[in-house]
Amino acid sequence: MPKKILIVDDEPDVRVFLETLLQENGYETRTANDGNEAANIVSDFMPDAITLDIIMPKETGVKFYRHLKKDESLKHIPVIVLSGVTRFKDLFDLDRQAMPKPYAFVEKPIERDDLLDKIKQAVEKPREVES
């Protein structure tokens, strides 16, 4: 059975790109164009990993991330954060509610092999999630 990846991004081109790339590499994918939509489908889809753009209008990616990590049945899912913002790590460091760090960060525009490596690691041996 193929591993499942949820792609969350507000840019249609990025969704198509990642969808094509991941399907081509043997993953099953679903996409969400913002944090709200992602929150609605994540429990149902139960992905093995999530790629998340944290800079999105309306519900930000950070809000979705917080929702995920508060939910006992979802917090184990590794999240790979994608963003064009260079200092995006600060967004997590500044978060007052101490959130566990994302599994990995990937800067846009992505290196295909780098992203594929990180996703492979994430679905094969997700780290123990510290509470």
Binding site: E11, D13, V14, V16, F17, L18, T20, L21, I55, G84, V85, T86, K108, P109, I110, R112
Partner: peptide, 18 residues
């Protein structure tokens, strides 16, 4: 500007790949 350019690059990268 850098953010916008990165998003465009991402789209170009995707198109090229596809």
């Amino acid at each position: 500007l850098a953010h916008s350019v990165k998003n465009i690059l991402m789209g170009l990268e995707g198109g090229k790949y596809i």
